[in-house]
Design a protein around this nucleic acid. Structure first.
Length: 620
RNA sequence: GCCGCCGUAGCUCAGUCGAUAGAGCGCACCCAUGGUAAGGGUGAGGUCAUGGGUUUGAUUCCCAUCGGUGGCUCCA
């Protein structure tokens, strides 16, 4: 796949783009070819290949590019690799490094190159060269590793470089993991074995990176979700079907309440729709032919086939069509936290980030072409409001476009309309001076998207929120409005989900906040910690007052020591602890201790009540 | 879905080269009433994921299924 990426910059923002750099490095090599890290990582991957050939002389080599944290190389091997193989290979790599083999570049004609790799029986290299030949190349680059002591060639690879001077200069590396990967990324092809390595210029950088990975694992949403008792999965319920525990449900409902207030302010109307619909609906919408495999199989009843809904759009379209519309009604904005079910591949399920039942912050905006820019801008404004509220700063905004090859297959076959609508979105983004990247072949089948890409702490990329322009489906539903001249017109539809799904949003926020939610989102906002049980009576009095004010408060009336109670509240990441002892009872005070802070303040309960009321509400 | 790996108490994990299992935390009870990140004691908890197979005997070995997981593919 050719990956063309154009980056628009208006201001410097710090974005973490592991998979983007991955794409740039592996598929558009020139971009970073001058980079020193690129050279050492790429050279390290050659050294890995040499080590693997030493261990398995019959190994077939595929490709081995650098990536954002190191490198990988794909092989076809006579047996499955096991983790114990990695230290052995690492040792061999270090020996090769010690020899300081020269990287010697040369060019060969295509036919020479083909003959060479056929002779040493490397079919993947042969296939790559044949591909280059078809593209019209006449020469290809080779890199030989030459042992200086005896001038022997230890390893040869098809490669356009560049490399470091010798194998001693490949930085500090550590083989990280073994994985399966399809040849050329195509699931119809054979599965190869991929070895990933981390690689950095210095030992300190490598160690820091490995340490950072370990730290990241501590804030993995799957781990925190269990520790904080937010959600769970159960084998008898099914894979990818999360159960929200009481504390997680509070977060769900707080988010939902926020969304309802924000959407109300922006003029959305709330609608509600069933979880299932007849097959006809999805044939009409066009989803079924594209997504049948990832929908739960149909339920057959009374000669009808019903599907669990995988998206809310068709239901909303039907709601729009239920009453006649005039241009005076537009824009119409329907919002619903809609439950959807998608039969995602078992192998792609991942905690809360990739699930089979999800509840989406969905809305559909039906508007005229003239209203598009203003409506789209308002949606982006809403996104930016949310990002600021949550303090989300590591994300990438992406204009997801169609691909020419996909027209008529993955995408509605109307190229002029694609180009036009993609430009409409581009113009809005440029006007708002929002930095974004453009990526081909990432659109929805019915129109281009504006996506918010984020990365989980362990580095997987997800679309957090999405905003789509649909130029195809309203027509299929015969959705119309009467314009000022009395003519029937088809509205445009904007699909948008700034708060993602509850599942993915909370998964993301858990990692973002490392489990320490702000007061307004926290399942338990205040923990009452009496110094000893003799002060429980005062604590109960405060608890009643706080509950009455709508504050989520818990009292630790256990007989544990004070130190233990503090520790328990801290490990539960409760944002506010109120320590209550003799002094507090006497003066009707509370000693406020905030999560992660040792210093505390003693204030009157009255003052505390006023401030917690303020803090527990988000202004929209 | 594909290539690997994993599944022992509520949680985190040890262990059994084949003779039905342990620790810490948590939980219950008792003692201690303690001013800022684990006070002390006692006790209850397990068909060793599920179903087959091999074996005198399986939690342990083999196969399948379910679930998790590292990647790949996919992601409306």
């Amino acid at each position: 796949m050719q990956c063309k990426i154009k980056i628009w910059h208006f201001k410097a923002i710090e974005v973490k783009l592991p998979s983007l750099t991955h794409k740039i490095m592996s598929e558009d090599i020139q971009v970073l070819s001058e980079d020193r890290l690129y050279c050492i990582r790429h050279s390290a991957s050659h050294v890995l290949a040499q080590a693997v050939l030493d261990m398995f002389p019959e190994a077939k080599l595929a490709i081995g590019p650098p990536v954002d944290n190191g490198f990988y190389y794909d092989f076809e091997l006579p047996r499955a690799l096991v983790p114990e193989d990695l230290p052995i290979l690492e040792k061999k790599m270090k020996q090769i490094a010690k020899q300081r083999q020269k990287f010697v570049q040369s060019n060969k004609t295509i036919d020479e190159a083909l003959a060479f790799f056929k002779a040493i029986d490397q079919p993947y290299k042969v296939e790559l060269i044949e591909g280059l030949k078809e593209k019209g190349e006449t020469e290809v680059g080779f890199y030989e590793n030459v042992i200086p002591q005896n001038q022997k060639v230890a390893f040869v690879d098809l490669c356009k470089g560049p490399h470091t001077d010798h194998t001693g200069d490949i930085g500090e590396f550590k083989l990280a993991k073994i994985a399966g990967a399809y040849w050329r990324g195509d699931e119809n092809n054979i599965m190869l074995q991929r070895i990933y390595g981390y690689c950095f210029e210095t030992k300190a950088e490598l160690d820091a990176y490995v340490k950072q990975l370990e730290e990241a694992k501590k804030r993995d949403h799957r781990k925190l979700g269990k520790e904080l008792e937010l959600f769970t999965f159960d084998e008898e319920v099914g894979a990818g079907l999360p159960l929200w525990l009481p504390k997680g449900s509070i977060i769900v409902e707080e988010l939902e309440s926020l969304a309802k207030r924000v959407e109300s302010k922006y003029g959305y109307q709330r609608v509600r729709s069933p979880h299932i619909a007849k097959e006809e609906l999805y044939i009409r919408s066009g989803h079924l032919p594209y997504y049948k495999d990832s929908m739960y199989p149909p339920m057959e009843m009374d000669n009808e086939r019903y599907y669990l809904k995988a998206m809310n759009c068709p239901h909303h379209h039907k709601i729009f069509g239920a009453t006649p519309k005039s241009y005076r009604d537009l824009p119409v904005r329907y919002a619903e936290y809609g439950h959807c079910y998608r039969y995602e591949d078992s192998g792609s399920l991942f905690g809360l980030m990739r699930v089979r039942s999800l509840c989406m912050n969905d809305a559909h905006i039906y508007c005229s072409e003239e209203q598009f820019e203003s409506e789209f801008s308002k949606v982006i404004e809403m996104y930016l409001f949310y990002f600021e509220l949550f303090g989300i700063d590591k994300y990438q905004l992406r204009l997801s476009k169609h691909s020419k090859e996909g027209l008529g297959k993955k995408y509605i076959d109307n190229e002029p309309l694609w180009i036009k609508t993609e430009d409409q979105i581009r113009q809005v983004l440029l006007k708002l001076k929002v930095p974004f990247v453009e990526v081909e072949d990432e659109a929805a089948f019915y129109g281009p998207k504006f996506d918010v890409q984020i990365w989980s702490v362990i580095g997987r990329e997800f679309t957090l929120a999405t905003n789509q322009l649909d130029f195809g489906v309203p027509e299929r539903f015969n959705l119309t409005y009467i314009d000022a001249g009395g003519n029937e017109k088809t509205p445009l539809c904007i699909h948008r989900a700034p708060l993602s799904t509850h599942e993915r949003m909370i998964g993301f926020l858990l990692e973002h906040y490392a489990g320490a939610f702000p007061v307004w989102l926290s399942p338990v906002q205040v923990k009452l910690v009496p110094v000893s049980t003799v002060f429980n009576e005062y604590a109960i009095e405060l608890q009643q007052a706080l509950l009455k004010a709508g504050i989520r408060v818990e009292l630790d009336d256990s007989t544990e020591s004070l130190g233990k109670k503090i520790r328990n509240a801290e490990t539960a990441k409760t944002p506010i602890m109120l320590v209550l002892g003799e002094q507090e009872v006497a003066n009707k005070e509370v000693t406020v201790r905030r999560y992660g802070q040792r210093e505390q303040t003693t204030v009157s309960f009255e003052d505390f009540m006023a401030s917690i009321k303020e803090e527990s509400v988000v202004k929209v």
